[in-house]
Design a protein around this nucleic acid. Sequence first.
DNA 1: ATCCCGAGGG
DNA 2: CCCTCTGGAT
Length: 226
Amino acid sequence: MAGPGQPQAIDAALGELYPDADCELDFTSPLELLVATVLSAQSTDRRVNAVTPALFARYPDAAAYAGADVAELEALITPTGFFRAKAGHLIGIGAALDERFDGAVPGTLADLVTLPGVGRKTANVVLGNAFDVPGLTPDTHFIRLANRFGWVASTKPDAVEQAVGELFPPEDWVQLSHRVIWHGRRRCHARRPACGVCPLEGLCPSYGEGPTDPAVAATLVREPRG
DNA sequence: ATCCCGAGGG
DNA sequence: CCCTCTGGAT
């Protein structure tokens, strides 16, 4: 089997490259992680972590979000982008948690995706990092790299989650997601993958499709905390 | 200019 | 499938 290569070997190599790969959002409860993850949509961890301390202090529980003043909430989350949609989502989440989940964040995929602003990707982040429920996170990076690695040809999140899930045991899914996503953000970019500073030569079917001169590739690496 | 660990709506 | 929503970093 030439195409998929050895998934375990790729995961191991990424584990050596990113030994500290984890969720970069700051949170101390499932609700905080849920809120931070909703704010992360098309944003960055740095910008989210910059606003969450004040946000969490102002809105300590679901009821606080449900009763929030829209303008005040929008002002607090403005730097994360898409603030109007996100503010509406957070207020809707607060109301939904109070009405249907006794004020607590539900710990199942089926329940989480019924919340406004929460899709499959956001739900899996919350499940994997706040509830220790095994789950893959098929975001844009994960899908792109799963395609490049030859693990699956489809670009649809459901198909990617299914196919990759069969290549790895559930206990690996959360860590695998973080490693693959970190690699997508730091080296294996959409437009110019930095193959020259990637350890997957001989393992990745797409190796060499980006700059392979180490000096050039090094200029493309995005360091952490961005 | 281009991208960001997306989601909702048409 | 398409489109829109947003500010910030590079």
